[in-house]
């Protein structure tokens, strides 16, 4: 049964971790898509910026976390969220608003956001270098080993402290977003604007305020996603385009402009990635004795090697665009 534990560690836990990160990123992308009607290519770099802010704050005050009983990086997260939200609003005022005022086509906005992505990338790597850095500076990563009460299982299920924090934060973000969109006036105005911007403006909704609020939420969520990713592994400044593809795939799978769809899409893409790189030979080997003699299991039975991980979100993207371009939840904007 150790093989099953291996499966849980490598697919169930790892898949939910990547899934949550993609989900939080995709929610931001899909909100921007539904309010401003363009694919925001600078989102991955906004995530990196959020993580960098956490890194800077953690380096400045490494002892804060010990006083509260949490990793310092998590304590610094709200501040980093605020800073990233500020950056997002600033970018909108400086770069996107003039373009919008000219009434350009959405695709020009996309190119503009690519320019912004490059600016952010350049700035981040100019100041932070290109090396990977751990967010745990003064502390140690806590690792929980869950022993299973079965005779045949000798290996434990392994969950690390950042992963537990990640699950809690994802849940909090999803519930918070749900309450915001369904219960508050602003959230309802936001949904109205995503349905029909002209009608929303005619019925007295301040659309430029909604745009600002969208950027605040998207920036805050980007900081959360970037920090969680960096907590789980390490802060890497050069992920940009490798993160962008899964996040867009998640947003499109869930149906563009559909926050709950984006969350589902994030988990679909995350699990698809881990399932595709998982070596299935491990699970099949105990059954080897029941196979006929001519069927010999190869050593490596993964669908794609880890170096081709990026193929998976692309394949999902192509499949969804071919069969159901509106996404599984019927996005509003196609």
């Amino acid at each position: 049964m150790n093989e099953l534990v291996f499966f849980i560690n490598n697919v169930v836990v790892a898949g939910s971790v990547t899934g949550s990160i993609y989900a939080i990123g995709a929610v931001g992308v899909t909100l921007i898509f539904s309010i401003m009607r363009f694919a925001h290519f600078a989102h991955a770099d906004m995530m990196t910026f959020g993580a960098l802010m956490v890194l800077v704050l953690t380096t400045a005050f490494p002892e804060v976390g010990g006083a509260v009983g949490l990793p310092t990086a998590v304590v610094m997260l709200p501040l980093a969220m605020a800073l990233t939200a500020l950056l997002a609003v600033g970018i909108d005022k400086g770069f996107y608003k003039p373009l919008r005022a000219h009434g350009v086509k959405p695709i020009v906005m996309v190119i503009g956001s690519l320019g912004v992505a490059l600016i952010l990338q350049g700035l981040i790597r100019l100041f932070a270098g290109t090396r990977a850095q751990s967010l745990y500076i003064a502390e140690r990563k806590e690792i929980f080993r869950l022993e299973l009460p079965f005779e045949s299982v000798t290996r434990p299920i392994i969950v690390t402290e950042p992963q537990v924090i990640l699950f809690i934060l994802t849940l909090a973000a999803v519930i918070g977003l749900h309450l915001f969109l369904n219960r508050t006036r602003t959230g309802k105005a936001m949904r109205a604007m995503s349905d029909n911007p002209d009608l929303a403006r005619a019925s007295g909704i301040n659309t430029s305020r909604i745009v600002t609020i969208t950027w605040i939420i998207a920036g805050g969520l980007a900081a959360v996603a970037g920090t969680l990713l960096s907590l789980d592994v390490a802060f890497k400044p050069d992920l940009s385009f490798f993160l962008l593809l899964p996040i867009f795939a998640a947003a499109i799978v869930g149906g563009v402009g559909h926050p709950y769809g984006a969350i589902a899409g994030g988990f679909v893409v995350g699990f698809a990635e881990t399932l595709a790189v998982f070596n299935w030979a491990v699970l099949l080997r105990p059954l080897q004795q029941h196979f006929p003699d001519w069927l010999e299991l190869p050593r490596n039975l993964a669908f794609v090697g880890t170096e081709y991980k990026i193929v998976v979100p692309f394949f999902i993207l192509v499949a969804i665009l071919v069969w159901r371009p509106t996404g599984i939840f019927k996005g509003k904007v196609i």
């Binding site: 959405p106 996309v110 593809l245 170096e307 081709y308 990026i310 692309f314 665009l321 371009p325």
Partner: peptide, 27 residues
């Protein structure tokens, strides 16, 4: 695949295929 859909999707798909081609050639 992409040209009948929104223009943004073409940008996303081409960005992806470029990284895949590079990963393939590299490995």
């Amino acid at each position: 695949i992409c040209l009948g859909l929104r223009s943004d999707y073409l940008a996303i798909a081409t960005l992806g295929i470029a990284e895949i081609i590079k990963a393939f050639l590299k490995n």
